[in-house]
């Protein structure tokens, strides 16, 4: 209910913002900002893919891998959760070239943000897998399934449903953190806003429109994850019975 209200508010304010902007002669801002928004969306999507992969691998490695891998997963999780996203971004951007690794800023951005959110996601994966009732594992043993088979066919599909809402929050955090990439010269939405602000000084209008665009993208993520959750729960037919 709250979410639906939020979407309505977002859409209304977005259109209102657009209307105000065009009527007041801010039309020239819109194309540039929308181009920036496209870059923001690209980084969010690619970062989400990286994050989900890192989180799944690290979360499962922390639970089930032999000790060297488990240790590696713990170091990754603690390192990326314990330091700032911006520090990680700058480190990859400024320090990696010193090791002879030069990546395009876009690659650095996607890798850094994906790794950062992935570290938080690893705990989401771990928590959801640990929350699957022990009886499910016992049933797979009684049916003589291997651990890998059990995990892939029985445990993960059930954990998946519980993961969706926290992942929704993480994707919003990811979207918000994409603004940081403007600080390593990528012309995303935040970068465009800064640039226009410096040339036109129409600060209030520009930043208001930008905030509303971010809110609109965030609302789309929220609604999308809601729909995904409903579908996933539907596939399990509401609850696990007795």
């Amino acid at each position: 209910m709250v979410m639906r209200k939020l979407v309505v508010v977002a859409v209304v304010s977005f259109s209102a913002g657009l209307a105000v902007a065009s009527f007041a002669g801010f039309r020239e801002f819109i194309p540039g900002l929308l181009e920036g928004a496209l870059v923001t969306i690209q980084i969010t999507l690619a970062g989400a893919v990286v994050a989900v992969i890192c989180a799944t691998v690290a979360g499962l490695a922390k639970m089930y891998a032999p000790w060297p891998l488990r240790w590696l997963a713990v170091v990754y999780i603690e390192l990326f959760r314990g330091t700032s996203a911006l520090v990680q971004l700058f480190w990859l951007f400024f320090v990696l070239p010193l090791f002879g690794v030069t990546l395009a800023p876009m690659t650095v951005a996607i890798a850094a943000l994906g790794l950062n959110i992935g570290a938080y996601g690893a705990e989401v994966v771990r928590g959801a897998v640990a929350a699957v009732p022990r009886g499910q594992w016992e049933a797979t043993t009684a049916l003589n399934m291997s651990r890998t088979q059990a995990l892939r066919r029985i445990i993960l599909p059930q954990a998946f449903v519980a993961m969706i809402p926290p992942w929704g929050n993480l994707f919003i955090e990811l979207l918000k953190s994409t603004a940081l990439v403007s600080l390593i010269t990528i012309s995303d939405l935040a970068f465009r806003a800064q640039q226009m602000n410096q040339t036109t000084f129409r600060t209030l209008e520009i930043f208001t429109i930008v905030l509303v665009i971010y809110l609109a993208i965030a609302s789309i993520i929220t609604v999308g994850m809601r729909a995904l959750e409903q579908k996933a729960v539907g596939a399990m037919v509401r609850g696990r019975g007795h």
Partner: peptide
Amino acid sequence: VFQHFNLFPHMSALKNCMEAPVTV
């Protein structure tokens, strides 16, 4: 067979009975 059944909630009755014969 367990006290609390431990059926796989994300699979139909048929799929519950087919899963292990297929994978194992």
